[in-house]
Amino acid sequence: MRRLWIGLTYIVFGLLLIVPVVRIAAGAWEEGWRGFAAGLTRPEALHALMMTGIIAVAVTLINTLFGVMLAVYLVRAKWLRPQLKRLLNSIVDLPFAVSPIIGGLMIVLLLGPETTLGALLGRMGVDIVYALPGMLIATLFVTFPLVIREVMPVLQEIGTQQEEAAHMLGAYPWTTFWRVTWPSIRWSVVYGVVLTVSRCLGEFGAVLVVSGNILFKTQTATTLVYQDVENFNLTEANSVALVLAAASIGLLLFMEWAKSRNSAGRHG
């Protein structure tokens, strides 16, 4: 019985998870190292990877900063009434429930060239939709809950005693944060950052809608893969996809390593 279940689990994992990853790696090497390198060093692929990199760096910085502050407020702030806190807390998760396509649509509806706000900004020379700012907003929206959801439980768990002690001893709020709170939430922030980076690299639906997928302008790595597949350039698509897959698997492994290291440290 036991053998049967373990065997079945191996089969499910193998067919569903391992075979597809191996297949994409094999696909990228179908025409050897040259095919892979050629697919990757195409000017459009380099530009797309650069766009993805810019978005990942900017979005991670902004959402880490705001995410940590919002998590601190939602757990600690005395100026927010508990009911309001609960409401805000449930709103934080909403981007998880929104289809990425719909997230993109929201931004087009609010800031697109046909809306009042978009037209106003357009006249001032700022393009939001079909340009980098819109793609940043879309990715910010999609990755918003990640840091907050990692940091909040830790803040709740560590309690307020140490922070109150620091305050009583006359420390400024900033000093208290950096010397007392930060060291205990540091690793959860790292987890949140890793998840955010990984989601930025992989975000597709929202960015596709908002960017318009314009070659050499707003095309990101994932939307390039999409376009390559639509044009039946499967080998080229494979090489970019392999890079994305390798990056996300690398981040996943880093996360596993950090988590096991930290839990081992706590018990030992």
């Binding site: 994992f13 696909g27 992989g202 939307t223 996300s248 996943l252």
Partner: peptide, 27 residues
């Protein structure tokens, strides 16, 4: 291989969805 399989569980969340689409297309 238990802990290896356990870490593999999160793979679908980590992989970009466009890459997933391409994988299924190829397979």
């Amino acid at each position: 291989g238990r802990s290896f399989l356990n870490s593999l569980v999160d793979l679908p969340f980590a992989l970009p969805t466009a890459v997933v689409g391409l994988m299924i297309l190829l397979l």
